[in-house]
Design a protein around this nucleic acid. Structure first.
Lengths: 335, 335
DNA sequence: AAGTTTTCTTTACGCGCGTCAAAATAATAT
DNA sequence: ATATTATTTTGACGCGCGTAAAGAAAACTT
């Protein structure tokens, strides 16, 4: 930097100022720097820069599971938003393990991130770890909520979306049963169950909930084996099944196919299956999956901009914000 | 560190030595440090540490597209291998864009990584950028090769895998046609075409290759629209189609379903479809997809250990290594 | 026990940059 | 043209650690 200061004709402290914020120096000097920058391609040493700053321009992006295309897509949106705002996103996947989530936060700590965008596991997350971390670093949650923690939460209004699809299913055929896991990892699943009950009540139909065992992130497999078993045994009270998420639905579609049950909304079909999330693969299932599309982009951008606001003003939010976006019905062939 | 040296009764330089490599100090002092470590939870400042080292213990892991579950799974394996070996993986996705790949390498440069594990785009990658980067940092390629560049390449033997599935298909029914994209981004696709031609020749059958237009990473969509068109027009010369990868096959299965064509290897079926890669979703398609399983774990671990060897010895490989693992046939219901 | 080897302590410098205070300069206002 | 304000320069210190040299201490050898 010393050398670059020499050749650019600008003093080192001013250069330092420039690299921290180009707008903070006079136009004429900015031009000089940028001219020299073209000839000598100097770049400040990341480590030296960050050593002296109390906080960096890094943003931690922590996702529960990158192997799930849902998260990798929303992660991409978030990453992009960080880049656009001049921050450096650091992507971390917790690989389906809440312990890894805590470890990721701990690892982030030493990178002194300016803020963190966290899609937590929810109920399974270690509340204390998240709480402790968010004391030191501003955290905005998205996708899954952890009640009362962190600066803000951005997600989808499950009551709106579930009502949307329940209403559609009731209107177009038999009222739906709900198919879900017995002990959902995800708070959204619980919201959706409540929403289902509420919505069925409003429409004057009896609710039927089918909960199956299964652990971990193998939703498709659970949907296929357990959902298939229920189908085989003829346990569902109606011919319409609303799955708590698309991955369960994908598994159940697979099971139905193997059992020779025709799924769809046309005359020859014996079963309707619907999902939730508009998973990237849901348009390629056989038949294609009727589902609810969450507004990935809106959620990601709002979460990011909420965080950037906190960072810009330099002060935490006085009251915790919760923003819920509406989803939309995606009508395909399975229901 | 000064303070921690005081309370632990160890001099600061020795502490520094300990943190660089705990094995490098005497057992008794190691115990003292670790005892003190429990009471005072001191951790060296990452940035200060890396500022002084010419190279860090960071490993860049660059993948072409995290939205593809194939890559996210192999990425996970690689990450794990790095962690186990005591390195810090830094995951980067190029989001389907070769330009982003170059940008990722450029961004990695300032993090002074000890080495990089790169799954390149292949033909579309910017050879010069990769070449220039690998001059400064040891790079091991995996999944897709870039001829002659970097220290080593680890992947799958497409000639073995394609021959395996071609042989199976020929033996169990009509010989397969090959379905692929016109201008594949990926060198593996080209290898597979060659392998298909070779294998068909060996088995004494006529080869039929169907190449379709389409750009980008929407393989499923291309498989469905273009593959569906070919199916609809009855263009395939045999009733067996080998898709260049699973994602194309998934799209084509979807198309076949929509056209009312029954896919499978039993009597009532009119079409057989096979894929390549054992994509995480291939077991949940309708019907489930017969395909080739690559040995993700072996590839990831070999790529990682090759890199670690280079880092440990401190010297580049004299001759570029190419390691190809064999894949295995996964017989399911689609063929 | 004396000599040898290994490991540790002391002391000191430097990495590349952020940042502060005082002085110098440039831009703007009167 | 002079006073005022905004910006830059000079000079200097410190961040937290790696690392080198020389001497002290501990461990091992025979």
């Amino acid at each position: 930097m010393e050398e670059f200061a020499a050749v650019s004709g600008i003093s080192r402290p001013t250069l330092s100022k420039y690299f921290n914020d180009p707008e903070s120096v006079r136009q004429s000097t900015r031009d000089k720097v940028e001219l020299a920058l073209k000839q000598y391609d100097y770049r400040p040493n990341v480590f030296a820069v960050n050593q002296n700053r109390r906080t960096t321009r890094n943003i931690g992006v922590v996702l529960p599971n990158l192997s799930d295309p849902f998260f990798s897509e929303i992660g991409r949106e978030v990453e992009l938003a960080c880049l656009t705002a001049g921050y450096s996103p650091i992507l971390m996947s917790s690989h389906g393990s809440p312990e890894q989530e805590s470890r990721n936060l701990e690892a982030l700590r030493s990178l002194k991130p300016a803020g963190v965008l966290l899609a937590p596991f929810g109920r399974v997350s270690d509340r204390r770890d998240i709480e402790r971390f968010s004391k030191d670093v501003p955290v905005v949650l998205f996708d899954a909520n952890v009640e009362g923690l962190c600066e803000a939460f951005v997600g989808t209004d499950n009551f709106q979306t579930v009502d949307l699809i329940v209403e559609y299913l009731c209107r177009s055929g038999q009222p739906p049963c709900l198919f879900e896991m017995k002990s959902p990892l995800n708070p959204n699943a619980n919201k959706r169950r409540q929403a289902y009950l509420e919505s069925m009540g409003q429409h004057g139909f009896e609710a039927h909930i089918y909960q199956v065992d299964g652990e971990g992130w193998g939703f498709e497999e659970i949907g296929r084996s357990e959902g298939g078993r229920l189908l085989y045994e003829g346990r569902f009270k109606t011919d319409t099944i609303l799955c708590s998420n698309d991955r369960l639905a994908i598994g159940m579609l697979s099971a139905a196919y193997n059992l020779g049950i025709r799924v769809g909304h046309d005359d020859g079909a014996a079963l309707r299956i619907a999902g939730h999330d508009d998973h990237p693969f849901s348009r390629f299932t056989s038949p294609s999956l009727t589902t609810i599309a969450q507004d990935y982009a809106a959620i990601a951008n709002r979460a990011a901009s909420t965080l950037f606001n906190i960072l810009d003003t330099g002060e935490r939010l006085k009251t915790r914000e919760e923003t819920l976006f509406e989803g939309s019905l995606v009508m395909r062939n399975s229901a």
